[in-house]
Design a protein around this nucleic acid. Structure first.
Lengths: 342, 342
DNA sequence: TTGTATGCGTTATCAA
DNA sequence: TTGATAACGCATACAA
C-alpha cells in the first residue's frame, strides 16, 4: 500500500519548495509556466491527490454541507436529497445526511455533530417535536447558513424553502367541492408542524368560500400510515352524519381510507371522493389512482441548495430568504366524479 | 458571532498548556483528577467544541464513510442507507452519500472524491455499466476497507454483503410451478449485473427441477419500469405460445405486466400469476397485492456496516468477508391461485 | 503529572 | 518567480 504522496513529495522530486508546488496546483499567477508544467507532470506521475481534510482545516471551508431530516427512507425526503445533490455536487460539495427520527434531542445532537465537522451549511427539515430553537441559534452564531426546507420553524437569520401548503389544501378542497361533495372530512397529522396547520387552514378557507359549514367532528388527527387512515375512516363512516369526501394531509392515510371504503362497498368516486397530499409514487400505481397534491420535492431540494449557494457567496451580509413553492393538484380517479374532468 | 474556542483558549484560561488540555479531554490517564475537572469545567464554560477536521488530519481517521449507489431515491437504496446509519452513527461515523447514476465514469469520480476526503471506508453498490476495476484497486491500495453491497464485482481484497438472488429466484419460480403454472416467463433487467444473472440462473434451475422446458422466447430483457413491463407483456401475450405466469426480476415491471393483463381481461391469479422482486412497499398497497421476493435492505445495510466496523478494527490484517443474506418470498394475491395458500 | 516540541497537509504572508 | 516560515486545531513522543 503506497503511502500517500503530498506536495512535499512533489517538491522534493523537483528540488523546489512545497509553497511553489501549492501555487502551481492552485493556478496562482505568481509562478512560471515552466515550473507549473513540471509540477503538474510530476504530480500526475506520483499520483498526487489533494487531501481535502488539510485544505479544509487550513481554509476553514470543509466543502461539506449537512442535510438533516426525520427519516431518509421516505419518498419525499429521498427526493429532496436527490435535488440537493444535483445542485451541490457539481459545485464540489459533499452532503452529509443525518436523521432525527422526529426526536428533538437527536436533532440537537446531529447538529452539534455537523458543527464539529465544520460543515459549510445546514439544510434541515425540523422534527415534529422541535420546540426549542437553541440548536438553530448555535448554527447562526457561527455564521453558518441555515436553510429550512418543507418543515420550518421561525428563527431569525435563517432562510427557508417551503411549499404553499395553504394553497395546496385550498385547491384540493375546492376541487372536492366542485365535484359536488358536501361533507368533506380532513385528516391531519400533527398540527404543531406549520405544514399541517397551513393545510387545515387552507381546507377551512375553501369550505368557507364554498359555502360549506366547518364541522369539527370531520377533522381527525392521526398518524401518517395506512392503518390509521383505515381506522379513522371507519369511525367517520359510523357517525350519524358521515362525510362524502376526505381531504387527507397524508397519502398513506388516503390509501387507508380508500381501502376501508371499498371494504364496506362505498363506491369511489361516485359516492365518495378522496384526495391525498404528497403525490407519492404509489398514488399513481393503484388501479384506483389517487388524487394528490404534488410537493415537487426535487425542486424543493434544488432550491434549498441554491439558496445555500447564494448565502455562502455573499460574505458576511446574511440575507434571509423565504422561498415558497407552488403546489400542483394531481387529479386522478379517486376524486373524478364528474365527466367534465375526464 | 463568537470565534470558535480551541484547546489553546482553555489552556490560556487555566495557565496550563494545550497538551494538558488535550489529555484531559481524551481521558488520558496521565493527568490529575483536579486539572481534569478544571479543564472540563472551563471547556463547558467557554463552550468548547472539538474540531473534527483537525482531529481527522492528525489521526488520519476522518470518521466519515462513503456510501456509493446508483440513485438515492429508490426505495431499496434509501432503506440500505437507513440500515447503514443505524449501525454507524452510534459509533461516531458520518455517512457521505454519493450517486453514480449508473455511470462508470461518475462512479470513479465520486470514489476519487471520497478518497480525497479521507474517508475511513467505502460501501458501494456498483453501477450497471462498471467493467473496469481500477478505481476499486485505488481504494484497496490505500488500505481502506471496501465493501460491496447488493451489486458486487469481483475484486480481490474487497468484502461483500449480497442477497442470495439465485435462491430468491429459484423459490419464486418454484412457487409459480407449485401453483400449476406451466409456461413461466421471466423479465430480467441487465444481465451484466451479477444479481440479475443469478436470478435468471435460479429461474432456470427451478424450471429444470420442475420438469419444465426452458423457452428462450419467454425471457425478456427490459428496463426496470412500469411501461417496459406493460409493453413486454403485450408482446408476450401476442406470441403463438403465450406464457401463463411471469417471474419478474423487478417490481415495477411486474406491476406493468399486471396492468396490461388486466386491460386485456386476463384474470389474475386464476389465469395468470405474477411474482416480482424487491418487495417494494407499493406491492402491498395495491388492491391486487403483488407477490415479491424481499431483499431485506435494512439488514443488508446494517450488515455491510458491521463488516466495515470489523475490518476497521483489525489493524492491517485485511480479511475478505463474503456475507450472503437469505431472501424471503412474500406470497400475495397476484400468485395465489390455489386455495391451499390462503 | 505536566510541559516542550513536532507533525498531520495545506495555504498565505513576507522576503529574497 | 521562488523560498522560508507560520498557521489551521489537535494529539503524541519525549523530556522534565
Amino acid at each position: 500500500m503506497s503511502k500517500k504522496t503530498t506536495i512535499y513529495d512533489i517538491a522534493k522530486a523537483l528540488n523546489i519548495t512545497a509553497a511553489t508546488v501549492s501555487r502551481a496546483l492552485n493556478n496562482n499567477p505568481r509562478i512560471s509556466d515552466d515550473t507549473k508544467r513540471m509540477v503538474l507532470e510530476t504530480a500526475a506521475e506520483l499520483n498526487y491527490k489533494p487531501n481535502r481534510l488539510a485544505m479544509a482545516l487550513k481554509s476553514g471551508k470543509s466543502k461539506n454541507v449537512g442535510v438533516v431530516l426525520p427519516y431518509i427512507n421516505r419518498t419525499f425526503f429521498s427526493n429532496v436529497i436527490h435535488g440537493i445533490e444535483e445542485e451541490l455536487n457539481p459545485m464540489g460539495y459533499n452532503v452529509i445526511i443525518c436523521q432525527t427520527h422526529e426526536d428533538e434531542k437527536k436533532e440537537a445532537d446531529v447538529i452539534q455533530n455537523l458543527l464539529n465537522a465544520q460543515v459549510d451549511g445546514i439544510l434541515i427539515s425540523v422534527s415534529r417535536e422541535t420546540k426549542n430553537t437553541e440548536h438553530f441559534n448555535q448554527i447562526l452564531k457561527k455564521n453558518i447558513p441555515l436553510i429550512f426546507y418543507d418543515r420550518k420553524i421561525n428563527v431569525k437569520g435563517a432562510s427557508s424553502v417551503t411549499l404553499d401548503d395553504y394553497q395546496g389544501a385550498y385547491e384540493a378542497t375546492k376541487h372536492l367541492i366542485d365535484q359536488g361533495c358536501k361533507k368533506i372530512a380532513h385528516f391531519t397529522v400533527d398540527r404543531s408542524l406549520e405544514i399541517y396547520e397551513n393545510r387545515i387552514q387552507g381546507y377551512k378557507q375553501a369550505l368557507k368560500d364554498g359555502g360549506i359549514k366547518f364541522n369539527m367532528n370531520h377533522v381527525v388527527t392521526i398518524e401518517s400510515d395506512i392503518e390509521a387512515g383505515k381506522e379513522a375512516t371507519k369511525k367517520l363512516m359510523e357517525l350519524a352524519n358521515p362525510p362524502d369526501a376526505i381531504f387527507s394531509a397524508s397519502d398513506p392515510c388516503a390509501l387507508g381510507a380508500i381501502q376501508h371504503l371499498k371494504s364496506i362497498n362505498v363506491r369511489i368516486p361516485e359516492d365518495f371522493c378522496v384526495v391525498g397530499f404528497s403525490n407519492d409514487p404509489f398514488t399513481q400505481f393503484m388501479e384506483l389512482t389517487i388524487s394528490s397534491v404534488d410537493q415537487s420535492p426535487l425542486l424543493m431540494g434544488r432550491t434549498a441548495a441554491k439558496v445555500f449557494l447564494e448565502q455562502i457567496n455573499e460574505d458576511d451580509i446574511k440575507i434571509e430568504k423565504q422561498v415558497v413553492l407552488t403546489p400542483s393538484l394531481k387529479i386522478r380517479k379517486s376524486s373524478m366524479k364528474l365527466d367534465s374532468d375526464l
